[in-house]
Design a protein around this nucleic acid. Sequence first.
DNA 1: TACAGATATATCAGTAACGGATTGAGTCGT
DNA 2: ACGACTCAATCCGTTACTGATATATCTGTA
Lengths: 120, 120
Amino acid sequence: MRVLPIPPEIQRLLPMTPAVFYTMLAISPGALHGYAIMQQSATLSSGAFKMGPATLYSTIQRLVDLGLVKETPGDVGEDARRRYYELTTMGRQVLESEVARMNEVVKLATARLVQRTSAS
Amino acid sequence: MRVLPIPPEIQRLLPMTPAVFYTMLAISPGALHGYAIMQQSATLSSGAFKMGPATLYSTIQRLVDLGLVKETPGDVGEDARRRYYELTTMGRQVLESEVARMNEVVKLATARLVQRTSAS
DNA sequence: TACAGATATATCAGTAACGGATTGAGTCGT
DNA sequence: ACGACTCAATCCGTTACTGATATATCTGTA
């Protein structure tokens, strides 16, 4: 399987902020419209992360500009207001690389949190 | 082992931004001074995350104000400029809860990234 | 003891990201 | 045809981040 190199302007947004990460994670199995992305983000984080509409739409716009997300037509006969977004191939790779980084960090942090010294 | 509940004003900063997370992770095994925190953050992220001094010191100040980090005296006879910071008990709990969240998300995301649909 | 270079803290000014509130329009049940 | 909900979108203020820069101190070395 071929993996394109991630260009530097994309590298700059790694590690991802929570808004970027949950937005991309929400649409990773398939296209979703904005409102659904908001709801999915809350669900995926067990309610810990609630994105407002301003954050959502500005984040989507940024990701589209960067070529990580693209708009796609929804099914015919559906709510005409809905605008669907999905990951591009590069978007998927970037998300995968972010998940890999998080996986490393979690292992590292788990080990680190054992060797405690002092605190108050 | 007793675990204090995390107050709502702290919950608001979860999920953590990269700057907050790496700062806290850097000092999790024991107190470090600012400059060392900067270097550790870069090391812990394999060079992916490089914090400038402005981000570092404003982040530290915020964490001190929130009671997650406190300044502690360094060893005598050391470089007098150095100011050391360590996690408070609450800070450690918050970091632990963030790591737990990340662990969940990684599992969830790994599963999600398998069930791919389409992309370009 | 003077100098160079690395270490270390700190702030400034600007930008990027975020968040709450709100608007407005379309959908659906009754 | 009314009200409740869904959905996209933007306004405006705040928070967080960044690069550049300033200032001082420490360490080695010649």
